[in-house]
Design a protein around this nucleic acid. Sequence first.
RNA 1: GGUCCUGUGGCCGAGUGGCUAGGCUGAGCUCUGCAAAAGCUCCUACUGCGGUUCGAAUCCGCACGGGACCUCCA
Length: 490
Amino acid sequence: MQNQLTVFNTLSRTKEKFEPINKGLVGLYVCGPTVYSDVHLGNCRTFISFDLIYRYLLHLGFKVRYVRNITDAGHLEGDRDEGDDKFTKKAKLEQLEPMEIVQKYTLGFHDVMREFNNLPPSIEPTATGHICEQIEMIKEIISKEYAYEINGTVYFDVEKYNKEFPYGQLTNRKLEDLLEGTRELSGQDEKRGRLDFALWIGAKKETLMRWPSPWGWGFPGWHIECSAMSSKYLGNTFDIHGGGMDLQATHHTNEIAQSQACNHKSPVKYWMHTNMLTVNGVRMSKSAGNGFLPGELFTGNHPLLEKGYSPMGVRFFMMQTHYRSTLDFSNDALQASEKGYARLMASIKTLENLKTSDTSTSSIKDLEKSCYAAMNDDFNAPILVANLFEGARIINSVNDGKETISAEDLDQLKKIMHDFVFDVLGLRPESSNSSKDKALQGVMDVILDIRKEIKAKKDFAASDKLRDDLKKINITIKDTKDGATWSIEE
RNA sequence: GGUCCUGUGGCCGAGUGGCUAGGCUGAGCUCUGCAAAAGCUCCUACUGCGGUUCGAAUCCGCACGGGACCUCCA
């Protein structure tokens, strides 16, 4: 394995050496989407960031079990542990069965993930598929006396828990401070502590999604599903748990509390949190009205968008920012990275036809080292991208005859570029092999051949007209000393 | 109010106590019938004020600006 991977652990707020609990194996859990509406671009960023992490771990040779859940039940609208869950609300709104809502948005989510070329996780468990596991876990927490039941609803006793475990460790907060920031219990509240949260919520007569439990009919609280499913598939303590930074303070804090209360073990060795996508400096979210959907992004059909952007262009855009930094969206930034992406991909095409020499003028070994060093430093994709552009520079220089490369180094360079661009960054050349494309290739061969003859007769007016006319339909002709090439823009 | 993060060149964005990523844009040059592409060069930054240091954009303090979380949210 290429040197030592380090990861930034939210628990310690430092970069730590990555050493999996079981040598060669990695358990990775990422909080997935709540499928009651379309995912927006901000949601996608998190999943793309973890796709990069997953891909690099695979590239390093780890056997990774990647679990990413689908939340399809048990998510309340507000913080009061009362009212409808999100699915019931949406189902009533759209006059559908809750599970129709779930199905619709799950399929949509998968489509978007595929567009962005995200690898599917090893297991994608759903909350509704693991009601029994959640009930068992709640029973266990009650038996250890960290939870109590009132009128069919089970609450986690945060203050009691905090006497034995540090409740706010993930966000470096003390219980007293947390209590200060919370509103007083209102007369309607039945829970004992202001920070107590629901593990199981008793169904009201209008609740559509409900299951039987020892406490009557009801549905699970939001946090318990991740605790139950992660421990089921990855064990009571596993390597990496990830999610967006917005989940850190509440969701993940409560997850730790539940698992700790149940198993008396810290559930996760490395907590990893990805930063937010912003628009004009403000976090993209549905409530802020500044979010847009991947579909709108691809077509450009949104007031904030000047044009459509390809999924791979967007993915590359995200790869130029570290996952722990906020990424500000703008048309300018996106268009800039689209161009850079095109240049990088063009160089990879060029790479296939490079001529070799006896010696190399650039050190391919150093390039490789730099690529691994970048990724080993907490998955620093922006530095990796910078290095890949150095690779592009070498490729183009060799192609221009300004530098040379040995056959051995060329093989190595090909491997580096392919491994990192396609396998690690997960970029995919927008290629297709349809019969239409093959026909177009044939047609262009004929046209370029005719143009070559025209040029040989020095009829530049005619050859330029041909080139200009093709340009009008977005086909670019480039004359090089080895003949002409063509490509389709956008 | 509490807990944090952050402020980098025209734009986007990395970053280490000294050797100053990368992309995009702009200007120039080379190459070329021209164009395009490509390569090279240039425009060389670190919010402000103090402090530590031989030396700080990088460490510390203060100020100002931006943001996140503390309520559902990737």
